[in-house]
C-alpha cells in the first residue's frame, strides 16, 4: 500500500477544563479503534478539575504512531481564547500545519484566524448548544463538525461508540441530546458558508 493510500488523521482539541475537551477527544479515539489499527489519545491537563488549560491529541493511523505529541497538527478545535496562563487561541492558530483545518467555537472565541494557508470554520457551537437546551453539548457540536470536514470516522460509528461508553454512566439520559448535537454539528459544517 502506497503512502497516498494509508489513512492518517491527527486532531488537537484545546479549551478550558469543564468544556468537555477530553470527552470528545477520547470518544473520537475509541470510535477510531473500530476502524484504525493504530490509535492514540493523549490528554494534557492541569491538576485542578475545572478551569485550567485542557487539551488533547487524537491520532488515527494505518501505520505505527511514534510520537504522542504533535507540534503541527493537521487539525485543531479551539474552544477558548485563553486560560490565565496559556494563550490558547494564539498558540493553536499558529501551530496547525499549512493546509490544515481550524474549527473554532465562535460563540466563545471572538478572535479571527490571521492565516490564509489553513481552512477555518467558525461554528457558533456554544450558542447553538444553548438553544438545544444545554451549553454542555457544544463539544459534541464541534466534534460533529470535525467529523463532517475530515471524514476521519463515520458519524454512525461515533454515535454507536458514544452509546457504548455512556451505557453504564449516570449521565446516560443525555445520550439523545449528545447524538443530536453531533448531527447538528455535522450539518453546520456541511452547510458552512465562509
Amino acid at each position: 500500500m502506497g503512502k497516498e493510500e494509508t489513512r492518517y488523521f491527527e486532531l488537537m482539541i484545546a479549551g478550558i477544563g469543564g468544556q468537555g475537551v477530553l470527552t470528545i477527544g477520547r470518544l473520537l479515539a475509541e470510535a477510531g479503534m473500530k476502524i484504525y489499527p493504530n490509535v492514540l489519545y493523549f490528554p494534557v491537563y492541569g491538576a485542578a478539575m475545572r478551569g485550567g488549560e485542557s487539551e488533547c491529541t487524537v491520532i488515527l493511523s494505518d501505520e505505527e504512531i511514534p510520537s504522542p505529541a504533535i507540534h503541527r497538527p493537521q487539525a485543531a478545535i479551539i474552544m477558548t481564547e485563553a486560560t490565565f496562563l496559556a494563550p490558547i487561541f494564539k498558540e493553536f492558530e499558529g501551530r496547525v500545519e499549512p493546509g490544515g483545518t481550524i474549527i473554532i467555537d465562535s460563540s466563545i472565541v471572538q478572535n479571527k484566524v490571521q492565516r490564509d494557508d489553513v481552512k477555518t470554520f467558525y461554528i457558533p457551537a456554544s450558542g447553538v448548544a444553548q438553544e438545544l437546551g444545554s451549553h454542555q453539548v457544544a463539544n459534541f457540536i464541534l466534534l460533529g463538525a470535525y467529523l463532517e470536514a475530515s471524514k476521519a470516522v463515520p458519524l454512525p460509528v461515533v454515535e454507536k461508540t458514544l452509546g457504548e461508553t455512556m451505557a453504564g454512566s449516570r449521565r446516560k439520559g443525555l445520550l439523545p441530546l449528545n447524538k443530536k448535537a453531533l448531527r447538528i454539528g455535522a450539518e453546520l459544517m456541511a452547510n458552512y458558508k465562509g
Binding site: 479515539a29 493504530n38 493523549f42 490528554p43 494534557v44 504522542p68 505529541a69
Partner: peptide, 9 residues
Amino acid sequence: FIIGRMAEP
C-alpha cells in the same frame, strides 16, 4: 505523565 495519560490499544 505522558506515558501515564496517553491511551492506546
